[in-house]
Amino acid sequence: MSEAVVTEHAEPILRLRGVGRRFGGLHAVRDVDLDVAHGERRAILGPNGAGKTTLFNVISGDFPATSGSIHFLGQDVTGVAARHRAKLGMGRTYQKTRLFHGLSVEDNLYLAVLGVKQGHLRPVVVPKQDEELRGRARELIASVHLGGRESTLVGNLSHGEQRQLEIGMARASDPKLMMLDEPASGLSRGERVALTDLLLGLDPSITLILIEHDMDVALRVAQRVTMMHDGRVIVEGTPDEIRANQTVHDLYLGRGHQADG
């Protein structure tokens, strides 16, 4: 069905070959090959300690890979610093919210919008440029349903609101690849539904990689699922294949768990 798309972007947006990351004696990620196509929604699943977050850190450049290569948009970014990868079009969130607690909601998004633009060091306010940045920040606030909280200090937001803001932060740079690390963690049932809707409503041209423990969220949003265990990729497939896969059940869902539907 997607032959046109495939020929248009024959190259995957993200290609990992033999990627590994050691922390001293601990081999957190080993020999990972991963291809993510343009516009794909990919979920990464795996038990705690499987190396999912480390894999994210290696892709985003927060930690450099200790082996292997990473290509993003056809370019080798293995040795490129995190801030340059952001400018190439990667945006991410963190498992534990990483926001600027001493700044307002609007200033947080202002920084996220400014990040991939020129003028980080400008010591004067240029009204035209500033209005543009703030206008974009306010658009993002509305898009993650935080309208009316513009001037609230982020430290005073509820946990759910902070998770929403995290997604706004990741979107602010108009990334081509967005990586969300457990966006649903700590959310109430209602907030999870709202989050799923928000993710399903994202621009389809954005490629999305998602680490998620909540199977409802992960399997509803994702088109393909990569299963990790012990630092390695063990299975990859569609949500249906993953649901049906015996190894996944044994490792992750626990023996005796029945897939419902």
Binding site: A82, R83, A86, G102, L111, L114, H120
Partner: peptide, 19 residues
């Protein structure tokens, strides 16, 4: 404003594109 971002979370600031 970016300086205050660096104060609150330098790692996040680099992943947003700041030096």
């Amino acid at each position: 404003i970016s300086l205050q971002g660096v104060r609150d979370d330098p790692v996040r600031m680099s992943s947003l594109g700041y030096n």
